[in-house]
């Protein structure tokens, strides 16, 4: 099994980078409508979700927890203007689920913007919102988020999951990059981002136990760190994580001295904002994988003693 310290340190580095580059979590109010004002909300929602996991698992050091709290405060109060930017975004694109998706992790951490909740409740009652065309994995995620916000999911998650790639446990040799992301996100939604590993149905858990090592091996050799990080999260969501030593060592070695995790192969060069946009996600994923794997490793140690 991999050294827990090595796994933990990946997350320590990642949080330092995210804090040092917090200005990258920015909105662009004057953006071309063709691109869309809501495009830049996604990184903020992902940041909040990962910080939520960090608090939930309770394995972060005090410095990490402090950085996470300050990142949440800064993005909520300044970037999102106390949630008012979410409302503004919703009025620009009334049918978009993005404001609601970004809001949920903040709501779960005690931040509140009642107007967005009214929007979510209204949208949840609209037939067109239940059937607007999107990928089955995203649909499952929206149902899971509705439940977490206290709404009755439409469609129910048990129904939504049926359309996903993973639920069919198909031929593992057909998996390529896009499908692999569908798999990882399906697992995130089924387990509430690693909170409930028991949320994975037994056949899916067994399927992943069998084939995940192949995908980890593959994307490790391709140095696709962003996807590898998500696959390491999936490993940590399994009933018996492998905490694959070769993968974790290479993942840790790919991390930069300042904590950034390149998305693919090496760090890109360019303007700071452009570099941020390329590597913020892989760095968030590094923090996510680290905290979850550390938590599972410590539970195993506790269980063994």
């Amino acid at each position: 099994m991999t050294d827990t310290r090595l796994i933990h340190n990946v997350g320590v580095g990642a949080m330092e980078w995210l804090w040092a580059h917090r200005d990258g979590f920015r909105l662009e109010p004057g953006v071309d409508p063709e691109i869309g004002f809501l495009e830049r909300f996604k990184p903020i929602g992902e940041l909040a979700m990962i910080c939520g996991v960090l608090f939930r698992e309770g394995v972060a050091g005090s410095r990490q927890a402090e950085l996470a709290r300050r990142l949440l405060d800064t993005t909520w109060r300044e970037t999102l203007d106390g949630g008012r930017m979410l409302v503004r975004g919703q009025r620009i694109e009334p049918m978009s689920p993005i404001p609601f998706e970004v809001y949920l992790p903040y709501r779960e951490l005690g931040y509140s913007q009642p107007e967005i909740e009214r929007w979510a409740a209204m949208l949840q009652r609209i037939d067109g919102w239940e059937v607007f065309e999107t990928t089955p994995t995203r649909r499952l995620g929206l149902s899971a988020f509705q439940r977490r916000l206290g709404l009755t999911p439409r469609p129910p998650e048990a129904e939504a999951v049926k359309g996903t790639w993973l639920a069919r446990t198909p031929e593992p040799w057909m998996v390529e990059g896009r499908i692999a992301y569908d798999i990882t996100h399906c697992v995130f939604h089924l387990t509430d981002w690693g909170e409930r590993p028991e949320g994975l149905p037994a056949d899916i858990a067994d399927y992943l136990r069998t084939w995940l090592p192949v995908w980890i091996d593959d994307w490790l050799d391709l140095e696709r760190w962003d996807l590898l990080g998500e696959l390491l999260v999936v490993d940590a969501c399994l009933p018996r994580p492998t905490l694959d030593e070769r993968a974790w060592k290479a993942f840790a070695a790919a991390q930069q001295p300042d904590g950034a995790m390149p998305a693919i192969r090496e760090m890109p060069e360019g303007e700071p904002d452009d570099v941020f946009d390329v590597v913020y996600h892989s760095t968030l994923v590094a923090a996510f994988a680290s905290v979850l794997a550390t938590s599972r490793a410590l539970s195993e140690l506790a269980g063994a003693s």
């Binding site: 593992p172 040799w173 998996v175 069998t210 090592p213 192949v214």
Partner: peptide
């Protein structure tokens, strides 16, 4: 067997 099956998937992917 399962390891050989994994190796088959790996070879196809590569």
């Amino acid at each position: 067997t399962v390891d050989v099956a994994r190796g088959f998937v790996r070879a196809v992917r590569r």
